[in-house]
């Protein structure tokens, strides 16, 4: 109990302490590259909460959410088909093995140069880049479903739908979730990168523009916003994962203790 409280305190206290330190150290800064945190926060409020919220922040968030959602659905669906339909497996296996070796972020430049920067194209590049981690994790997850569970499903003559939804999906769930988490990070990176590399709208574009026009406070404000979004998205994901995979979290905790 006490231990837990200390952990919580450390988790919340450390970032707060760092922010306070940043605030104190930068307070009287005249270095143009490191403006005072107070100034950054002012710009943050002015830029993101009012001026550009509708035009840029929402646009970026919409791209991220839509692109990620589609990538997940397609990735899991395609993963099931790849793992369970032999013809598809033979066709896609080499491709998957190839992509498995490449860190997903390394794919970003390929998609951006291939696809360009229109709004639809930005969405497509998010989907394509974020697709692979989920797809690969789904294929791996389904292939490693315990044969005993397959035997049980066969003996009790579960229907095909039951096998897919009640056995394969939950059994592969932990691996799929791990893949989805990587996909989320990739989707986020591609969202920013695609905006930075050519768009005129969006948080990434605004941030780069600020940097290029020497408005360092605005640049820092952009980076701060991106950090907050990334942190928030990941936290939401963790919350959802711990809820959906409560059985897995619980059994792991029990196995460790």
């Amino acid at each position: 109990m006490n231990r837990k409280l200390i952990n919580w305190g450390l988790g919340i206290g450390t970032p707060l302490l760092l922010v306070a330190a940043w605030w104190a150290v930068s307070q009287n800064s005249t270095n143009t590259f490191f403006p005072p945190l107070a100034t950054i926060l002012e710009r943050f409020q002015a830029l993101w909460l009012f001026d550009h919220f509708g035009s840029d922040v929402l646009l970026s968030l919409r791209n991220l959410a839509l692109g990620y959602a589609l990538a997940t659905v397609i990735g899991v669906g395609l993963g099931f088909v790849t793992a369970l339909v032999p013809v598809v497996r033979w066709a896609l296996d080499p491709l998957i093995h190839f992509f498995r070796g490449i860190p997903p972020v390394a794919l970003v430049p390929i998609f951006i140069s291939l696809i360009g920067f229109g709004i639809e194209m930005r969405l497509v590049s998010i989907i394509l880049a974020a697709l692979f981690p989920t797809l690969i994790a789904t294929v791996d997850g389904i292939r490693s479903v315990d044969p005993s569970l397959k035997d049980v499903s066969a003996v009790y003559r579960l229907t095909r739908t039951e096998k897919l939804a009640q056995v394969y999906l939950p059994a592969a769930g932990p691996q799929i979730a791990a893949g989805m988490q990587v996909s989320l990070q990739v989707a986020f990176i591609v969202m920013i990168a695609s905006e930075m590399l050519g768009a005129s709208q969006g948080i990434g574009a605004m941030t780069l523009l600020a940097q290029q026009s020497f408005m360092t406070s605005d640049m820092w404000a952009g980076i701060l916003l991106l950090g907050v979004i990334g942190f928030g998205a990941n936290m939401l994901f963790e919350l959802a994962k711990n809820k959906v995979l409560a059985w897995y979290v619980g059994s792991r905790r029990l196995a460790k203790s």
Partner: peptide, 14 residues
């Protein structure tokens, strides 16, 4: 119906 020898692996943990 078949009760498997490997009972722990034959139950769905979820």
């Amino acid at each position: 119906a078949l009760v498997f020898q490997d009972y722990s692996r034959s139950l769905m943990p979820w």
